[in-house]
Amino acid sequence: MSQANAQALSPQSAAAAPPRQRRQTSDRAIAWLFITPTIVLLVVMNIFPLFYSLYLSFNDYSVIGSEPPKWVALDNYEKILTSERQRYWHNFTVTGRYALLSVGLQLILGFGLAMLLREKFRGSGLITTLILIPMMLSPVVVGLFWKLIFDPSKGFFNYLIYTNPRGGAEWLSDPTLGLWSIVIVDVWMWSPFVMLLCLSGLSAIPDYLYEAAAIDRASAWFQFRRITLPQVMPLLLIAVLFRTIEAFKAFDVVMGLTGGGPGDTTETVAVRLYSEAFLGKFRTGESSALAYIVLIIIIAISNLYIRALNRAREG
């Protein structure tokens, strides 16, 4: 290793003394040695499943069945997009509504918190850390204890917001409140993440811009609109990108809280996918097709955001 380094550093001296034929590993070999395990893992864990599931999405197949995959071409996709589209469409609208609500609220709350914590004051470090705690918890744990918090008889959520003094709202079993309760938990858990990104964006804005703006006689609101907002916009968009992708995959918290219920009012695409793939019929082929549709949608949305991001950066 050290010899290889020495050679790399001083090619002249190596050329001056004719190289003796000795067994030594070249830089290239060492590089390969480091990379190979990663590549093997990547292929086994990621790339193979990716393409195998793509293959399965064109087959009629169930992992618990005894039959081998049977090629059906686009039948699975057709089923999802035509004959069974009503319920799938419902899953997508639930997911979309959920994504819109939770990402929107997270942005407002996260950005607001970041603006408040932007100025350093006594204990602001501690407060920031405390606010970040929800983000670090396991989603399953979060789902479980929020289930208790939402509980109409034992939980304190209703008590906090004073709904209906006689018997509070049934958050998790009410068809309209069900989605809201998931949104509330997601906002509680992930606003800190948006706040963290915004804080780093805000702290990157140099003070002299505000000094210049003060000299230019800009009001606080004008400074916010014309300096603060555009300067954090790239990070804000990154937050939106991350949170939207996450929202489209919303699964763990939903399962922990409502399991998709009541009925299928909170059944997100990911929850549906799970029930298709692993509950009851184990419809592997069809669920692979659904997974690919979700993947395509996520890629499309990400692309839109990234384009917006580049525009925000370059103007």
């Binding site: 000094e211 210049a212 800009a218 014309r226």
Partner: peptide
Amino acid sequence: AFVFQFFALYSHMTARENIAFPLQA
């Protein structure tokens, strides 16, 4: 008006927007 040692221009705006800023404000 203050001309800063290192200019302190608004990096996310064009030259035109920079110059217009005090008027728009």
